[in-house]
Amino acid sequence: MAAPCRKVNYQFVKRSLRCFEPRVIPCRWSNTLRNQIVEKHRHSPLSSTRELVKQQDDPSDVLVPREFRFVHPDFLPYPIWNRRDRVREKLEREDMLKRRAVLDIPEFYVGSIMAVSIADKNAPGKQNRFVGICIDRAGHGLNHYFVLRNAIDGQGVEIKYDMYNPLLQKIEVLKMEKRLDPQLYYLRDAPLEYSTFRLDMEPVPISKGAHVPLNAIKVKLNPRPWSRRWERSNLKGVEPLDDYITEKMKKQKQHPQIQKTWEMHDLMLKARSSIDDREVDQIMNEVYKRKEKIQKEKLQKRGQEGKREGKKAQEVRR
């Protein structure tokens, strides 16, 4: 016997099918184009302003040292995907390289002791030189900055410099070093002796090709109050803080919402807040090539100038 025919509720079917219909105008980003679509139109053969696709070099072609990306973190773009754009990043990088061809920006890390001279209208010699320890380094592209800290006349002073500011005259690294932490803002709550450096300090030479020395010093903080709750951020370059904090604070520190242990295992968070390794390789390749080219040009220029001077000297002798 055939099964009795079931009555179909057409209203229900209609409603359930509605979710498969393409939405006419998605609400929030209806005025936005996706990244792939913009790229497609930039390279489309129908486009009148067509950008020719450059054959990307095989990353294995150019031997970029692995450390190169840590030496130049400013070339890494802003990692949030919906604010990224290839052309903007490229134009930004070109500006940076142009500036680097004029101003010599050395390799440095958080913890290095540096001297920066900057043009200043109000300074006595129209120029200002500041020596200090680099306590932070951040920002993407042309927005990259670093912060120097020193104690002057018993007063802690911090200056933030934009790395691509055209007022910068010279950047020197007096002592190349690394510290245990990515940021040293805790020096604000440490005795001033940890952040005191002589303004006439002489540069400490480092042999070429040697590893950057790690300064594993443990800073002893002042007793509370502090500018931040340092016991909650797991600082490595600080002596244990157990003497300074109360039992209640110790308990609070163990709370899962403060520890945030899940962030270690959150792969999506990692993917969202960082850039793909292959992409980093491509960027670094491009930068490495350009830098080599710039250095060659510089050497050629120097050679030509040297020749000219030599000729002049010869003429004078005659």
Binding site: V102, A119, G125, L167, Q169
Partner: peptide, 12 residues
């Protein structure tokens, strides 16, 4: 400011 030009200086 053109990035390929020299740094700005107030020293005369």
């Amino acid at each position: 400011f053109n990035f390929s030009s020299e740094s700005i200086s107030y020293v005369t």
